[in-house]
Design a protein around this nucleic acid. Structure first.
Length: 260
DNA sequence: TTAGGGTTAGAA
DNA sequence: TTCTAACCCTAA
């Protein structure tokens, strides 16, 4: 490595963000050639743009370096749906916008009211970690844990009262506004009515989160199964290695019979 | 051309 | 020593 590392300037970062906003993530060549950004990004290749955006995405998601997220993935194309990398990247601009919003980028109301899917994953992992059930935890158990742990648990009477007005779509906007207000006001206990309203918002919020958490649980389960399969393959491989190193001759049929 | 994994320089 | 960010390599 002869050339020293060329740190990204704030101008370059800003140009990259604007380029992504304009052309979308993944259009690195287009962004790099765009006359609006090319003067600033002239010393950067499309690969540099991609790498920098990746770094920005991971730091903005609060997960630090991408190295922390490295998970062994099967090389072969999987039939099960996996999160598209494009989706992962496209989620970044919101986060980036949150950190330093460009003036032409409107923040959607959801940005700071809806936790990111990654948050749900971490909540699930946290729940699994805390529950420490030997055979894993049921989805419902984890959902309950998340609700209790995150203070979304409410009495039935409150829940019933809360769910009725939620069916009126005209109230949605108001509700979401209150929801964020309520979320921010944890610990500020007001009169009973206010508390009930805030609680109702939390129930609705928890329901939505529970649904999303379910989806993420399925993903976690899928990964868990893959890990189990990998582990058993590893065991088989080491057993085969041992037997072969002892000079035992094994046929394909024997191997297949041992595993299946 | 792009995505994603790997490597490495430099900072903390 | 660890972590982060920049750079490199390769498959698709």
């Amino acid at each position: 490595m002869g050339a020293p590392k060329q740190k990204w300037t704030s101008e370059e970062e800003e140009a990259l963000r604007r380029g992504v906003l304009k052309h979308g993530a993944g259009k690195w060549r287009t962004i790099q050639k765009d006359p609006e950004f090319s003067p600033v990004l002239s010393s950067r290749s499309n690969i540099d743009l991609k790498d920098k955006w990746r770094n920005l995405s991971f730091s903005a998601s609060g997960l630090g370096s991408r190295d922390k997220l490295r998970v062994p993935r099967p090389k072969a194309p999987s039939s099960s749906p996996s999160p598209s990398p494009q989706l992962l990247l496209l989620s970044a601009p919101n986060n980036v916008a949150e950190a330093s919003p460009p003036e032409d980028c409107e923040k959607s109301p959801q940005d700071d009211k809806t936790p990111s899917p990654k948050l749900y994953s971490s909540m699930i992992l946290e729940a699994l970690d805390e529950l420490k059930e030997p055979n894993g935890s049921e989805v419902a158990t984890i959902c309950n844990f998340i609700e209790i742990d995150k203070s979304y648990k409410l009495t039935d009477s409150y829940a019933k009262r809360a769910l009725a007005p939620m069916k009126d779509p005209s109230l949605k906007k108001k509700d979401s506004a209150k929801s964020s207000k309520a979320a921010k006001g944890v610990g500020q206990l007001s009169p009973a009515l206010d508390a009930a309203e805030a609680a109702a918002m939390k129930v609705a919020d928890a329901e939505a989160k529970s649904h999303l958490a379910n989806e993420h649980m399925m993903e976690v389960e899928r990964i868990g199964k893959m890990a189990e399969e990998t582990e058993s393959l590893l065991e088989l491989a080491s057993e085969l290695y041992e037997r072969c190193s002892r000079g035992e001759a094994l046929t394909i049929l024997q191997v297949a019979h041992r595993e299946f």
